[in-house]
Amino acid sequence: MDNNLKASGQRAVQYWFKDGLAELGGGVMCLILAVYFGLQQILQSSQGSFAIFFLLVFVAAFGIRKVMLWYRERSTYPRTGFVSAKSGLENHWLLGVSILFTLLLLGFMLYTIIRGIQTVVWIPVLCGVIFAFICTMVGYQTKLVRFYYLGAFCLFLGIVLALSGLGDFWGAAVLSLVTSLILFAYGIITRWAYIHQTKTITENADER
């Protein structure tokens, strides 16, 4: 019985990924990254454009989240209800690992800047590690195995692209594009299943 109670709670945690919109939003985000890396390669932008990179990422993430929530209010909540997930700050282990990972990543970037390394080292692997980390954290929290698979694949692809000699930005662009396509596929399948398994509840005449 205790396991059943746990499963009920787990389903509520997974609710954010039940309608496929989160994956579709993630797919759009990765697509924007792919376009950005592609443009970096084509236009041969300076290192200073990294500031634009961060700005672009934050604006895009914020915008996509807004659009996703707007659509969710109109499509998901009337069908299957509203659930607000916990912030994740309650899980100290998860928070600690996230902070440590971010510090390591920033430290690595700072090191490359201080040492005056002109070319950014192994961007595809770095992106692969970041994608894998995000997927693993999502998988750990939601217990959805498909995110572990995606994380492992991103890491593997990042290493392969780095070794392929495709170039830093092309490699990162391909990695982002492939990840976005996988997320779109996840999102479309999940969305299709969600739409077909649920319908908007209409009140019966005696319940009005």
């Binding site: 109670l5 909540y77 299957t80 209800g81 659930v83």
Partner: peptide, 21 residues
Amino acid sequence: SIILAILSAVQSADFLYLLRE
């Protein structure tokens, strides 16, 4: 106990969600 199990895993849930679950 199911209601409490659900609510203990999230910040909040609405009536419709609890109704379905």
